[in-house]
Design a protein around this nucleic acid. Structure first.
Lengths: 143, 143
DNA sequence: ATAATAAAAGCATTCATTTACTTTTATTAT
DNA sequence: ATAATAAAAGTAAATGAATGCTTTTATTAT
């Protein structure tokens, strides 16, 4: 459902959000190391997130990527739509291009149930909700 | 969640099952044309399904691929496991290799809900359940 | 037996995604 | 102003999945 890059993006953003309290910005290398991902993939992907205003960045010494309180309050779906596009939750379970309630594939009704549940979860869960268990040592971004 | 080949496999099997009443076997070309997929991909994929005993095949004139009543009663998950492997419904939503209830990613609980719902659907729905709406002209495999 | 048919198998190519490298641009501290 | 830092941007390579092609093997009807 989600691309590898998109999963990496969610992890990176959760990490960034969890660093908010420290008041410090994070560089590409730091983020990539923490979530155990390729530096280059992370760099490209963060660029996209900045362009889509999911996160902010600043150049130069003491520069890096960071988030505002408002951005921490964004739903996860903002990350997903920025990276994988707006149609993730509209795709047919069997890959038909025009699958809909009026022209359904045989799995349409059931698959839509799953897809909609996932979408709801991604709309309801805020970035800050997910970084909380990380800060409490209850959840992990690697392993 | 499912690979392109896996989606093609599900469509091919639903088509085969829907042809059961006719008592006729279907060749690679016929199947590929009906579900609008690459002949070669379909050939390879059907081979795998035969090896995993999801469907049967016979060579020679009047040969082709076909299914028994028993095979039509299989759950969809049999197709998925044959093509994409047994771990599809065990994978972490963020791609962690060791994500579990004791070492969860921040999305674990919520994602598991979605994953489990999808798995349940794939275990409960039988192949013959899905070819029924097709036979009734209520659902489609192309478009 | 032979020819025709159709799946099985192996190898090669294409395509998309991911990862890697290099150069450029902006910012800050000195 | 200058040097150092760090993101932005553009291009290239590597990987993996999907597709394409060719040969082999098995079966059936004649």
């Amino acid at each position: 459902m989600l691309s590898l890059t998109c999963k990496t993006a969610i992890k990176a953003v959760i990490y960034l959000a969890s660093k908010y309290e420290s008041g410090q910005k994070s560089g590409i290398i730091e983020i990539a190391e923490y979530i155990d991902a390729s530096e280059h993939t992370v760099g490209k992907m963060l660029q996209t997130l900045v362009k889509e205003e999911v996160i902010f960045s600043s150049k130069g010494p003491n520069g890096g990527f960071y988030m505002t309180v408002k951005q921490k309050g964004q739903p996860i779906i903002n990350i997903i739509e920025a990276i994988d596009g707006r149609d993730v939750f509209k795709q047919c379970g069997l890959g038909l291009s025009k699958c809909s309630s009026t022209h359904p594939c045989p799995m349409h009704i059931d698959y839509k149930l799953v897809r909609d549940l996932f979408e709801r979860l991604c709309r309801e869960k805020k970035i800050c909700d997910l970084c909380e268990p990380l800060n409490n040592g209850i959840a992990y971004l690697v392993g």
